[in-house]
Design a protein around this nucleic acid. Sequence first.
RNA 1: GCGGAUGUGGCGAAAUGGCAGACGCGCUAGCCUUAGGAGCUAGUGUCCUCGACGUGGGGGUUCAAGUCCCUUCAUCCGCACCA
Length: 807
Amino acid sequence: MDYVYVEEKWNKIWKDKEINSFNPNSGKKKFYVLEMFSYPSGSNLHLGHWYNYGPTDSYARFKKLQGYEMFQPMGFDAFGLPAENFAIKTGIHPKDSTMKNIATMERQLQNMGAMFDWNHELYTCDPEYYKWTQWLFLQLYKKGLAYQKLSPVNWCPDCQTVIANEQVIDGKCERCNAEVIRKEMTQWFFKITNYAEELLSGLDTIDWPEKTKAMQKNWIGKSIGGEVEFTLADNGKPFRVFTTRADTLNGVSYVVFAPEHPWVDKITTDEHREEVEAYKVATSKSSDIERQSTAKEKTGVFTGAYAINPLNGEKVQIWIADYVLASYGTGIVMGVPSHDERDFAFATKYNLPIKRVIKSANGENDDLPYCEYGVLCNSGEFDGMDSESGKMAILKKLEGEGKGGIKVNYRLRDWSVSRQRYWGAPIPMIHCPDCGAVPVPEKDLPVELPYNVNFTPDGKSPLAKCEEFMNVKCPCCGKDARRDPDTLDTFVCSSWYYLRYPDNKNKEKPFDSELINKLLPVDTYVGGAEHACMHLLYARFITKALRDMGYLNFDEPFKKLVHQGLILGPDGTKMSKSRGNVVNPDKYISEFGSDVFRLYLMFGFSYVEGGPWSEDGIKAIVKFLDKLERVILKANHYGTSNPDPASEKELEYAFNYAVKQITHDLDSFSFNTAVARLMECVNTFIKTEGKISEELYVSLIKKLIILIAPMLPHFAEELNEKLGGTDSVFKASYPVADESKLVKDEIEIAVQVNSKIKTRIVIPTKATNDEITAIALADEKVKASIEGKQVRKTIVIPSRLINIIVG
RNA sequence: GCGGAUGUGGCGAAAUGGCAGACGCGCUAGCCUUAGGAGCUAGUGUCCUCGACGUGGGGGUUCAAGUCCCUUCAUCCGCACCA
């Protein structure tokens, strides 16, 4: 068969007959299969796209054949940094390169033969789409879930621009090699932390890989501890620290502020100011990675200020150190060197006092630092309590005095959404000298991204240099105002696209709630595990926020989640241009066609594991399809035969077994075993050739075509037609295994003596345990191995084995 | 450092606690042909002769362990001084 020709033919027929169109009013039960949409960075589909979309499409086709009304859309995550960088390098406008890439990828995706419903396509850089991304921003703003604050960014002093983490190589700007510093800028944030608890508890309600749930759980990082209020010795001003070890409060010998903490300048004494300033500058130069490396020796400087411990009134030094992060807890920690490794190292280095307040339960005087939970000592009224009750007692006492209490803290930070970039959705806010930050009225959306903009980096956001974009009247007071010059993080665009697909042409609203509530949540979402903590968390957050605003009535966007594995380069490392190990699928498609390639991807890898690329088995798939084609076409000129009941029985067993297993395997994304079962089945067709009645052969072949259709869509259509079929095979129903054909009269089981396999015996399927035991004991080999010994016990595992224990 | 995952033939890989290596690649031998990189048959975990050993190593639970528990090593990934 000329696969490439046949595929073109059927792609066209499917398109003309709109065979893949979704009809929400069909009356059938809906099924929403979603693959993570494509980022159009290169112009061609890469292996990862194929691996994600090919096998998942087989899953979707399988579900369609099972009778579901299938919705499987595709679109493009079209904004983003690479297109802008490409533009800076080549002068080609991001919009032009992106639209060109999309056109190429659309064509390739159509040729893939996946049943994407192109009537529902969307791309995020389309004003008709980002209008609603901006709408989403405004709703969050109205709800108090979007706010501005100062936050550090990577700043390249030479390029005079903000750069992404990805562009910082060893603390240097990838473009000009200048040392990158951290700079505070005002930016927009989404309050995802408001949903921390629900994002955590909701994990229990969804069918996601445990691994992914664990990652989100760690990312949210709930920890139950306490807040303790210290005061400045100078003026009595209070400040709080978060701690999980309130039981060690009596052992505090110093307090540390994050260098960026706003109080640092105020509390530093003149004597120490120079040193503190120098330390702050040094901190701003070190990257997050450097700063947080465990290998690095702890550093810090004394501010000259003192704090008062609320529990015992002790006066302790206040230091700053870069190991304290402004973003976690309150940005201030207490130092207890006796019971914390890090604090111990710090105190030893800077000669700070070390006071034991915990001893081990058995009273032994263990070496310091003693970091375990134990029994309190040197803690006055709390002496003798174990750590857990001491912790609670101390926090309770502080709470009574208004100086702290139990506090839940999350590692999760609010989502920074401002990007000082051109190629993104403009933030729909206006800055008025009188009214402050004012939202763009919804009727004025979209705030269109201007085309003619100088996006070469030179110190300002590209949009800030575009006067016709920036100048605007304040919607509140009508005076001259300026637009927000930043664009939205592309994760905002992708946090709601699954809601837009079903209603992608709606001009009035982002989506019709009634329709979306019917079609969502997504039944099965398939994409890479690298999105575990960002995209997948953001999408959950946005769904919950929209629910709380009354737009949605479900809590979770993705009911079931599957991660496809990573296809590595042939050298076993991640494919990358710099390594030169990128495999382009195009040559395989043009040589073998997409069905062969898809089946190879399904058969050659464990889907969720992935692995190094190898093309070794592709030819075997071609051979298999040749075999399969011969077997199927034989139904057309079958001629006479000599039916043999045993062979017919064997074939019917093999076929129904394949149906049963393939159904199960496709459902659970176990594609490699599904293909293996298919191969076994085809092998039995060949083995029993000439021994099957024409009637049976033809009827099984007709079902076989439907059985293979999800995995080999073009191939199945073509053969169905050659067998006289007049309608698409995808209008048929998937075969269901006939259990009665799966019953065997006899089966072979293993016989163990003292748990060692000795032989195998054939028994009637219906044999009782006693009968099985009798047959086993009558076997010559068994007799030989139990000779002279007494049977103490027999264990029969139905249709598997019998274990005879002798002694 | 913490957390997670993985570790099975020459290779890709299978295996609800129940016959390890299904299915396929590769390889070996043979057959066949209009000699093509096609097709067919048989073999293919290791070791020697019967039967012994085999799922990174070492322990354990069990009648039975690739699978469960403890421990250890290696590789990969994620987070990374989280107070």
